[in-house]
Amino acid sequence: MKNRFDGARPQADRAAVAGKPRAEATDIKKRIEDVFKRDAELEAQTIRVDVHDGRVTLEGHVKVWTDRQAAERAAWSAPGVTAVEDRITLA
């Protein structure tokens, strides 16, 4: 009897071969918040992080412009991030 699949891979295998697995939103958010905590110069208590389908939204306010830049860099550094929308304001 001939194999009905003729060498075709199951769907799950094809997805793994096609590219890296997608990161979960909670994992991305945790990684970004962990970077915030480790960065001694970043005052990030007033920054909220929201993640949906790899897209990160940063909202809140900071006292200095460099904190805003550091928060955006932290967001981009997390694996699985495809876009960052920076809505942080200077207070």
Rank of each mutant, 00 (worst) to 15 (best):
R87Y: 04
A18R: 13
P79I: 03
W76G: 09
D13I: 12
K20A: 14
T89A: 07
F36R: 03
K29R: 14
A40Q: 10
P79H: 06
G80D: 00
A40P: 03
G54Y: 00
D39W: 01
T89F: 02
E85P: 01
D6C: 04
I32V: 02
Q11G: 02
R73L: 10
A91V: 07
D34T: 09
A75P: 05
T46E: 12
V81E: 00
A16Y: 08
V64L: 11
T46Q: 13
P10G: 03
K20F: 04
L90F: 03
A16F: 05
R14S: 05
W76R: 15
R31T: 10
G19N: 04
K2V: 11
K20R: 12
E24A: 15
K37F: 08
M1D: 09
T26E: 14
K30Q: 15
R38H: 13
P21K: 13
D13Q: 12
N3G: 07
V81R: 00
L42D: 10
S77V: 07
V49K: 11
Q45P: 06
L42W: 10
F5R: 15
A16T: 08
D53N: 13
T57I: 08
H52C: 03
E59V: 12
R73S: 10
D67Y: 08
S77E: 10
L42E: 09
E85R: 15
I47Y: 05
R73T: 11
G80C: 00
G60C: 08
I88C: 12
R4W: 06
S77C: 09
R31A: 13
H52V: 08
P10D: 07
L42N: 11
A15F: 04
R4F: 05
T82E: 14
A25N: 15
A8T: 05
G80F: 00
A18S: 11
V62N: 13
A71H: 10
H61N: 13
R87A: 07
T82Q: 13
D86E: 05
D53H: 12
A91P: 03
E59G: 10
T89W: 02
V51A: 00
M1S: 13
